[in-house]
Design a protein around this nucleic acid. Structure first.
Lengths: 247, 247
DNA sequence: GAAGCGACCTTACCTATGTTAATGTCGGAC
DNA sequence: GTCCGACATTAACATAGGTAAGGTCGCTTC
């Protein structure tokens, strides 16, 4: 359950002992904790570090002048915020904690060190950032083409599979800390409609969601209603199946 | 009007003569042309090259099983497809030409060569890819929070400003080859509603759109209805204004 | 233990946007 | 000059999803 980043990167490539030690060392350097709803970094600030989420859930979000808020991405354990952000002069969005989180700050120097001596890690981090981009694209498809039910189902599939890759599921269940308001801000729908939609998924026995725990009794069935195709997560190293689960 | 990539990168940093020669050389290596509507690369294929758009418009898109199509991004002259895509085993989406396009294919070797000897270029390409990610995020906000009119206005502002950065505008006009169907596939709305929305923008004198030419008489006014904030494009090198136009 | 609060659920009503389908316009092929 | 296909436009009608309002439950606070 520890070291979700390593666990995730190994979905892409094998890492040597030295690679893993490097990652552990980097992640231990500057650790910060944030309370739920606290901002990790705010729009307009100068980014100085790459953030790595060790524990808890966070999100990117953006607020329009008139107060509407959109959640743009979720960061789960093992997720990195943006490689090389420090190139930009200021953040164009904020990153906030959803649950209490533990975050490692990676400095420019530490990052460069890692990129130079460890080609395996470099490759793996490139992969992780290409996947993050693919996820963002899929969200565009989700918001543009799918209706409320499909959209919700799609999000739940994605989160579940990503959590699984980070080693944060057990059987068909995972922690699920999002409120209906946050789901609405993510999927571009009102809380009322989020509620209706969740009811509908529950009524079809596609999900059980209670006490911050999500259970998906039949993932394939949920994927079917979502028109969910996991290829964009680029998780299979050798074309093997997700649940081959060989560690 | 030539070399839109160089023009765009110089929005971020000054490039030396050697840097520019390098970019010109790379772009001249393998040039391909595609007709309008032809695919440059298709979902499922193995990516071998980074594509650079020299001329014309292209788009990323994804098609759901049931035929719904979402345009995920536009590539304008000077845009690069994905740095380092070749790490991935297969494309999770397609890239298609909208108009006839000229594309330079950049091989892994050429890319590595560029990244090693030219730190300025490396930085600039990182910047370009961070901006591309920011654009994708903004599209998420656009689809999630803005209504049809705002959404359309936002897209038009973005495209105009990006074209301007690549040197593809004159005064307040630019070529605009998108059909209403394509606009609908981009903004997640029906063609009928695209049409209504364009009429409304025309009636308010916010745009003139005719014969594949878009004119925005008052960009600020259009930005206002779109709740458009250009910060996500990260275009001002020294906090100077977009139209300082010092070349 | 009363008051306050945040998550959640529900209902009734309303509207932005989708659907379908008919019609118009224009440029190119022959 | 006629025909055709791609695109734009319009109208009439249908619906997914938004808005407003209110209610329940459990937790915290003092």
């Amino acid at each position: 359950m520890r070291r979700p980043l390593i666990r995730k990167l190994e979905k892409f490539t094998r890492l040597s002992r030295a690679d893993k030690e490097m990652l552990v060392r980097i992640a231990a350097q500057r650790v910060r904790r944030f309370a739920a709803r606290e901002d990790i970094i705010h729009e307009g600030e100068k980014p100085e570090f790459i953030n790595l989420i060790n524990e808890g859930w966070a999100c990117r979000y953006k607020t329009l002048e008139d107060g509407r808020r959109q959640i743009i991405a979720f960061f789960l354990p093992g997720d990195l915020c943006d490689l090389n952000v420090f190139i930009l002069k200021e953040m164009d969005h904020s990153i906030g904690a959803i649950t209490p989180v533990s975050v490692s700050e990676i400095s420019r120097a530490a990052f460069d060190e890692m990129m130079i001596g460890h080609p395996r890690i470099t490759q793996a981090l490139w992969w992780e950032s290409l996947v993050a981009a693919a996820i963002q694209r899929e969200w565009t498809v989700n918001l543009g083409q799918r209706d409320a039910l499909e959209r919700m189902a799609h999000l739940l599939c994605e989160l579940f599979i990503r959590l699984d890759a980070a080693g944060c599921t057990s059987d068909s269940s995972c922690e699920f800390p999002l409120t209906q308001t946050e789901l609405g801000e993510t999927l571009g729908m009102s809380t009322v409609h989020v509620n209706r939609t969740l009811q509908e998924l529950r009524a079809s026995n596609l999900i059980v969601l209670k006490d911050r725990t999500l259970t998906i009794p039949n993932l394939q069935a949920l994927q079917d209603v979502a028109l969910f195709n996991p290829n964009y997560l680029h998780l299979d190293r050798e074309g093997r199946h997700l649940d081959a689960n060989e560690e």
